[in-house]
Simulated scan of single mutants.
Amino acid sequence: MPVTAPSQPATDAELIARWQSGDQRAASALVERHAPSVARFAASLGVREEIDELVQDTFVRAFQSLESFRADSQLRTWLFTICKRLLLDRKRAERRRRDVAEIDERDAATEYDALDVMVGDELAERLRDAMGGLTDLQREVFSLRVNEGMAYAEIASAVGSTEGACRVHYHNALKAIKERLRDA
Rank of each mutant, 00 (worst) to 15 (best):
V119P: 02
M118G: 08
Y152L: 15
L88F: 09
D107H: 07
E111P: 00
T135W: 10
E122K: 08
D52W: 08
L127F: 14
V146Q: 13
Q74W: 05
L45H: 11
V31W: 05
L30S: 04
S44E: 07
A176Q: 13
Q24N: 10
F142G: 02
R70W: 00
A10Y: 13
D57R: 03
E32T: 09
L181W: 08
L181T: 09
Q64R: 15
K175M: 13
Y152I: 07
H169I: 02
R96E: 10
P6W: 03
E14L: 05
I51P: 04
V31N: 00
E148L: 15
F80S: 00
V3K: 11
H171E: 15
R139S: 14
E122Y: 04
V159A: 12
V146W: 14
T4V: 14
D113T: 09
G120S: 04
S7M: 10
A71W: 01
D107G: 03
D89Q: 09
Q138N: 11
S68Q: 09
R61V: 07
S161I: 07
R128Q: 15
L123S: 06
S157W: 02
A42H: 01
L87M: 03
S21Q: 15
L86A: 03
M118R: 12
R95P: 02
R90K: 11
A5Q: 14
V100H: 05
H34E: 08
L123W: 07
F142C: 01
R70V: 00
A35S: 10
V119G: 01
R76V: 15
Q138S: 04
Q56D: 03
R48D: 05
S21R: 14
D113K: 02
G164H: 10
D72F: 04
A62Y: 09
S143R: 03
V159K: 13
R167Y: 06
D52I: 04
A108Y: 02
A108C: 07
F69I: 03
W78V: 07
A27T: 07
A109K: 09
E102G: 00
S161T: 12
E179L: 13
D57I: 01
E148K: 04
E102S: 05
A124Q: 08
A153E: 15
A93K: 14
V3D: 10
E163C: 10
A153M: 10
A184R: 14
S68Y: 05
C83K: 01
Q24I: 15
V146F: 12
T4P: 09
A130H: 11
R167N: 02
A93N: 10
V60T: 05
E163V: 08
P9I: 05
D113V: 07
E50F: 06
Q64C: 09
G120F: 02
C83G: 09
R76Y: 01
H169W: 15
R106W: 14
K91V: 03
A71F: 05
Y170F: 15
L45Y: 07
R33L: 06
V119M: 11
A165P: 02
E122N: 10
L54T: 08
A71S: 14
N147F: 12
A62H: 03
R96G: 01
E14C: 01
T81N: 03
I51D: 07
E154C: 06
L134G: 05
V146G: 04
T81D: 00
A26K: 13
D23G: 14
M131Y: 00
A27Q: 15
V3E: 12
V38N: 04
